[in-house]
Amino acid sequence: MALLEVQDLHTRFRTDDGVVKAVSGVSFELDRGKTLGVVGESGSGKSVTFLTVMGLVDRKIAEVEGSVRYDGEELLRASSSRLQKIRGRRIGMIFQDPMTSLNPVKKIGWQLEEAVRLHNDVSRDEARRRAIQALQEVEIPRAETRVDDYPHQFSGGMRQRVMIAMALINQPEVIIADEPTTALDVTTQAQILRLMKKLQDDHGAAIVMITHDLGVVAELADDVLVMYGGRVVEEAKVDDLFAAPQMPYTWGLLGSLPRLEQVATRLEQIPGQPPSLLHPPRGCAFNPRCAYVFDKCRAELPGLDPAPDKADHRYRCHLDDAERERIWAAKKAALTGVEGSAA
């Protein structure tokens, strides 16, 4: 059994302008020790999906449906005190902006100790000891003295390490990282990604890596969900996804990415803007921007169906398989050019 099983999850926000369908029928599984990459652009529903899983969306304005089973236990119907026991203890979370994600008026040590003492009946001294140890584990120099510093005395990269230390301090089984490196410089990003890999090896936690960066997904993930307009539009093992993406949106994402190894002089661009979640298009959410759209796409939402030869590679698209294969072959050649032979 998977550690985290999400079935047909819906999150809708009631706003003054109408109902925003932020998440519409998302399903996935996460196994122990694995890394799930979740890619999508702003408004794809990737963050809201996991805030819903954690019970962190405001239920006063959000309607939530579906099922979230964590280790066999249904979380969507769990009491708030039950959820508090799971959050921070069994599922840790890391957020995007380390500058704003730590309380500016409390010492780093206090914030780490709080995480310890919320879930363990230990003395302040013991909590402090664990806080220092956690800081050492994320390679913060002079952890014994830095523990008494305030967040503004740390650089962005160091604050993100503190966030990671805090998420890991109770040795959770799952870490949900929401764009953990987006606000950081590339050399710092490389440090943080390497650290996360190392910690995963040491502790065996499962990681959900939510990001807009296909590069980060390629580096870290075992499995990938591509999200668009509140739905999963493609899911696959990471190698399959990059070797043979099946959905025009994924093609577009890969094509629009300038990359070091690329030879093409012009990027493939996806025309138009991400869809409105207030008034999503009928049929396939991607149809207004899709180059291969036909009538069926505008009328009917394609199911998330498996590829003919791979049961674990699933995607939403009405194109028939031969057609899809032909288009991808052409795209791949254009994308990789002379280096196509190496890939």
Partner: peptide, 10 residues
């Protein structure tokens, strides 16, 4: 340090 959007090359 730049992540490569290709697991094999990466």
């Amino acid at each position: 340090a730049v992540p490569i959007a290709d697991p094999t090359l990466g």
